[in-house]
Design a protein around this nucleic acid. Structure first.
Length: 612
RNA sequence: GGGGUUGUAGCUCAGUCGGUUAGAGCGCCGGCCUGUCACGCCGGAGGUCGCGAGUUCGAGUCUCGUCAGCCCCGCCA
């Protein structure tokens, strides 16, 4: 940047804007004198006259700088992109034939009379006009520029409006916003914690909350009745397009309620939110599926209902067939499931083998294609099916001429999930997705416990305070894997946007849970002692939900990553490319904390949504 | 931890079968231009081909490793 003299003029009241760039009064209305503040988005220097596009978050307006503006014209020649300017001038109608219909303010312009450069700009690492094509690496490093783009402006402003709606809705429903600690206690189960050491407590660590779960339950014990918070949560896990190491939840908990209270509250919330933000009228109540049905029909506990196709049960077709591999699996209690791809018979050999490779990557033993063409089934396994079985396969799958059916076999859940992934991926590729639909649904009746092979014990699918379905209480001893929980997830367009449960409020049931999970009383006490004490001190029946605010806003914005709705997101390696965090610290800071580093293995340098 | 993909000028990209001095558009710098709006015209500067090894007479190009971005599997109660 060139050396510039420090201007004797400064940003006094006379230079404060009288109008935003996008809201310039039309000359007919309230034309006349204006002061503008904004960024120089583009300049066109024609030699004797200079046009600049002055931008702020409301829009862009053309300013004309001519020799008749006096000494300031000389200065105007040195203006460059993204300089911050204050401009004094007069609004006028553009001369006939020079209107620009692609600009909202394109029928008018500001004839500059005076100009103050508030701040120059270095030549920038990328141009605003092509920022949507720029490498994300660079966007993140220069986030302040990225944020100046209309796309990011829109996303963050929409996010703000969504938060505002959330507060006002919950407040009107009698919820109290309570803040919970960020420096808190590490909890077992679940994601890896971010740990925080402190000088005054050497050798001990805080953990940043994975969610305020325990605190919100204690607030219920504390008689708060209805709590909410829009709150950051932290999980040290690997990232995805919809996961960040720190992410925001709308955290909710209510007393003296059951599942219906939560679902109707959320349906009212979503209806209001979509109406207020997008002007969309949602149909409520949302459909519900049990977890078992979701896996069985869609191969996912967060099915995207915008895709019509479902996974097909082919057990009956293959149980009598002479294909031994499938029969053997069926005899062992496994399943045969299929996925019909409309028009898929025209897939090339390579496309089919790619699908097979993907199925294997997802854990399937293989994938058997049955193409329906030239009036009959084609495929390597057709010869194992009798005429009658072929007819039945076509009938069961609803195949039409030109379709293909992909069959897989193995354990129920794994097989469904493999086909569930293929359903999504092929559905998206062949645009079977109803793009402008908002497909909400509730997934209920999750299993309460699952067997943890590593630790050789039952562990909570949701978390250890989730209430079992009281009808299944007996199974807790006899067949823990069969116990249904009172947990529920809210799914939108194949994204889990929220999840929660009715909690255990009976200390005896909680005790029973810990026993099944093989937590000794000592271990339970060490980890959750304060919660156990609280729950033994008069606990109202209670339950709640947490919504993944970033994911919800992402869907509202039509963005494809939550990074696009977070002002300062981190990369997949959980780095902040702008600030360079995390970074080395001064050895003195470490010694204050009594921390010694052992990086012999790792070398010197060096995963989030609505679930609670 | 694993699979895929990308990395060449400030940005977006091209670069043939491994072969002489690595190119284009935009941006930047200088000059010209009074109705442009992706202004136009003339000229110029600008390169650790992500990094490190290896193969070769010769590597942007081939091989191995490594770093970083993105997508995915595992993981995320």
């Amino acid at each position: 940047m060139k050396e510039r003299a420090i201007s004797k003029r400064f940003f006094d009241d006379s230079w404060k804007r009288s109008s935003y760039c996008g809201y310039i009064p039309s000359p007919g209305e309230n034309g006349g004198d204006v002061v503008l503040n904004g960024w120089l988005r583009r300049r066109r220097d024609l030699g004797g006259i200079i046009f600049i596009d002055l931008w702020d978050h409301t829009g862009t307006v053309q300013v004309v700088l001519g020799p008749d503006m006096g000494p300031a014209y000389e200065q105007a020649k040195s203006l460059r992109n993204e300089f911050v300017l204050a401009i004094r001038g007069k609004v006028r109608k553009r001369p006939e034939g020079t209107e620009n219909p692609s600009l909202l303010t394109g029928d008018r312009e500001v004839l500059a009379e005076d100009l103050l450069v508030l701040s120059p700009s270095r030549p920038l690492p990328f141009e605003m006009s092509e920022a949507d094509r720029v490498d994300e690496n660079l966007r993140l490093r220069s986030r302040y520029l990225d944020l100046r783009r209309p796309f990011m402006q829109n996303n963050l402003r929409l996010r703000s409006r969504a938060a505002e709606f959330t507060r006002s809705y919950l407040s009107s429903e009698g919820f109290v916003e309570v803040e919970t600690p960020m420096l808190t206690k590490s909890t077992p189960e679940g994601a890896r914690d971010y740990l925080v050491p402190a000088r005054v407590t050497p050798g001990r660590f805080f953990a940043l909350p994975q969610s305020p779960q325990i605190f919100k339950q204690i607030l219920m014990v504390g008689g708060m009745d209805r709590y909410y918070q829009i709150v950051k949560c932290f999980r040290d896990e690997d990232l995805r397009a919809d996961r960040q190491p720190e992410f925001t939840q709308i955290d909710i908990e209510m007393s003296f309620i059951n599942e219906e209270d939560i679902t109707s509250l959320m349906e009212g919330y979503m209806k209001g939110l979509f109406q207020s933000i997008l002007g969309e009228a949602l149909d409520v109540p949302f459909p519900r599926l049990s977890w078992h049905e979701a896996i069985d029909r869609y191969g996912s506990d967060k099915p995207d209902l915008r895709i019509r196709s479902e996974i097909l049960d082919l057990d009956a077709v293959f149980s009598g067939s002479s294909f031994d591999a499938f029969k053997k699996i069926l005899d062992q209690g496994g399943v045969v499931r299929g996925l019909r791809l409309p028009g898929g018979a025209s897939l090339s050999r390579k496309e089919i083998s790619d699908l097979e490779a993907r199925a294997k990557e997802l854990g399937a033993a293989g994938l058997a294609p049955f193409a329906f063409k030239e009036g009959g089934l084609k495929g390597p396994l057709v010869k194992f099916l009798s005429e009658e079985e072929q007819v039945r396969l076509i009938a069961v799958s609803g195949m039409q001429e030109g379709d293909i059916l992909l069959a897989a076999s193995g354990p129920w859940r794994e097989t469904c999930e493999v086909l569930g992934h293929l359903r999504l991926e092929t559905g998206r590729r062949s645009s079977q997705v109803e793009e402008d639909a908002w497909a909400f649904l509730w997934v209920t009746d999750f299993p309460l416990l699952e067997w943890d092979d590593d630790e050789q014990r039952w562990s909570a699918v949701h978390h250890p305070f989730t209430s079992p379905n009281l009808e299944d209480l007996e199974l807790l001893s006899s067949d823990p894997g069969k116990v249904r929980s009172r947990a529920y997830d809210l799914v939108l367009n194949g994204t889990e946007v929220g999840g929660g449960s009715i909690r255990i409020h009976d200390p005896a049931v909680q005790q029973r849970m810990f026993e099944v999970m093989n937590f000794t009383p000592e271990r339970a006490r060490e980890r959750f002692g304060f919660l156990i004490d609280a729950l033994s001190s008069g606990t109202p029946p209670h339950g709640g939900i947490a919504l993944g605010f970033d994911r919800l806003v992402m869907l509202l914005c039509g963005a494809h990553s939550i990074r696009d709705v977070i002002a300062f997101p981190k990369t997949q390696k959980a780095q902040c490319l702008m600030s360079g965090a995390p970074s080395d610290v001064d050895p003195v800071q470490l010694s204050d904390l009594h921390i010694a580093l052992d990086l012999s293995e790792e070398g010197k340098r060096c995963g989030s949504g609505g679930e609670e």
